[in-house]
């Protein structure tokens, strides 16, 4: 009897070790996880970040930019002001409601942009810099638990809700089980074609007086283009400032004034 037990343990033991019990999240737990991701990144007050974008493309010069991102999440307002290099100074984007406008001081004109706009010609999108609205924009489903390097992660699939305009209709997320941070994100077109893979190796948190808790932001995003395989984009959030912004900041007039 004892030998039978030992034999069973020897044969079946590795199988149990190889396939750990799937800690499937219940729908409530899944909803909570997504809401937590959003909530952590939400800023109740104003938010300003100094960002760096670097894009590498095969046989081309690197694209390098610095910009300031302004957010007022309560009103869903967002603005970018490019500060470097000199040729890009004063260019920007302004989001008001569902409108995303781009501005070029060289011609003094505003132009409508879509959710798929490549920010400053790079493979980054408006959503890479904005507050996280996953729970509002997507329906999530749980796919299982797996390893990402040394980390154990939940794998989720998110599908855009009807009538919501997003850059990508399907998003796959790999969320660290221990800290609840997104470590990897893949975005797919409606056809199912993989478009971008992004990694989030560094998350920073900063205490907000107005929120009375931490605001989380990805300090580094590495985006790999899945269509043009040789292209990659690096986004660094170099600094975040939570001081109040001017009341009339999210207006065309404010951005125009920066290059006048």
């Amino acid at each position: 009897m004892r030998s039978t037990f030992l034999l069973t343990a020897l044969v079946a033991g590795p199988l149990f070790l190889a396939a750990p019990a799937e800690a499937a999240l219940s729908p409530d737990e899944l909803k909570k996880l997504i809401e937590t991701i959003d909530e952590r990144q939400r800023s109740t007050g104003d938010y300003k970040a100094l960002c760096y974008i670097e894009q590498k493309e095969k046989d081309k010069n690197d694209i390098v930019r610095e910009l300031v991102v302004y957010r007022r999440d309560a009103d869903q307002k967002l603005m970018f002001l490019f500060t470097k290099p000199k040729s890009e100074e004063g260019k920007g984007y302004l989001r008001i409601d569902k409108n995303l406008w781009s501005y070029d001081p060289n011609v003094g004109k505003w132009e409508r942009a879509t959710e798929r706009e490549r920010i400053g010609g790079t493979n980054s999108r408006r959503s890479d810099f904005d507050e996280s609205r996953l729970a509002i924009e997507y329906d999530a489903s749980y796919e299982g638990e797996e390893k990402l390097g040394a980390f154990t992660v939940h794998r989720l699939v998110l599908s855009a809700k009807a009538g919501i305009d997003v850059a990508y209709p399907v998003v796959k997320l790999w969320v660290d089980t221990s800290t609840g941070n997104i470590l990897k994100r893949q975005e797919l077109a409606l056809s199912g074609r993989l478009m971008r893979t992004a990694y989030y190796p560094k998350w920073n948190k900063l205490f907000s007086d107005s929120k009375k808790s931490d605001i989380w932001f990805p300090a580094e995003i590495r985006i790999y283009d899945e269509v043009e395989k040789s292209n990659s984009t690096l986004v660094l959030m170099k600094s975040v400032d939570l001081h109040s912004l001017e009341a009339n900041l999210f207006t065309k007039a404010w951005l125009e004034a920066k290059s006048r």
Partner: peptide
């Protein structure tokens, strides 16, 4: 560690 405490900057 993936998470770090950030210091608020003044931009």
């Amino acid at each position: 560690p993936v998470v770090a405490e950030a210091k608020e900057g003044s931009i």
